[in-house]
Design a protein around this nucleic acid. Structure first.
Lengths: 126, 126
DNA sequence: GTAACTGCAAATCCTTTGCTATGGA
DNA sequence: TCCATAGCAAAGGATTTGCAGTTAC
């Protein structure tokens, strides 16, 4: 893959954000430094970066969100604020657990957990 | 919600299928007995049935698939044939497992498992 | 009778694609 | 130079919505 200033900037933006942006979020951010960039270029590069495993992505309802984290990981969604958090749980533990519980031979798992995050439960609990 | 012949037929069709149909699959099937039904009506009724919890749905990439199973359950996708199977695993077991592994207080989990299903591994294994 | 529901078509949203121009190696 | 990549705009697919006519109750 050939170098491009646009792709470099797109990658930098996703890695700099502390949330899981959708393509349009990335587009708006990159526009600040590259006003002429097109949305198509953003989509093409995000897809390329996911293919190269420099980024990963999560399906969030109908839309795709991008994720700076490329290693195997799972997601926790806060019911209150909607934030999507990355959660690291060793896959081997989950697979071992599932081996006992599931009739199929599971090779890979994707977990989406839901609950209330720490931020949102502050003051509510204690 | 008022009765409608269309909704009754749509529900019947989803419950009769042994796969997870997308709206258009349902539309095509219902058309056999109701040639004038519109795709909009199918979408509206599928959404209504999910709201009423007479059906559930699964996000499958960009599209929504409908599911005759309304109780809590998970999904296993075969890498080879693409079939989406329903899997019943007691949520309490998973939540107990996750309580130890995850920093968040998980209230709900959604598992998407991947592997090769029995049908597809026949002959390959043994 | 009247609100909810239908069919139809247009609109919407996110995403991809075709095309010509540009720029990295 | 040459081909991958950019920008732009048009097309695409799944889904929703607006509206006028129809139907359940």
């Amino acid at each position: 893959m050939r170098y491009s200033k646009q792709r470099e900037e797109i990658l930098k933006v996703v890695k700099s954000l502390n949330f899981h942006p959708m393509a349009d979020d990335v587009y708006k951010r990159v526009q600040r430094s590259m006003p002429h960039i097109s949305l198509g270029t953003v989509y093409r590069n995000l897809n390329a970066l996911v293919d190269q495993e420099e980024l990963s992505c999560v399906q969030d309802g109908k839309i795709v969100r991008y994720d700076w984290e490329t290693g195997p990981h799972h997601h926790f969604r806060c019911r209150k604020c909607g934030t999507l958090y990355n959660v690291e749980i060793a896959d081997e533990d989950i697979l071992k657990f599932l081996a006992e519980k599931c009739e199929f031979e599971v090779k890979e798992v994707d977990l989406e957990m839901t609950g209330i995050c720490g931020e949102c439960s502050n003051g509510t609990e204690e």
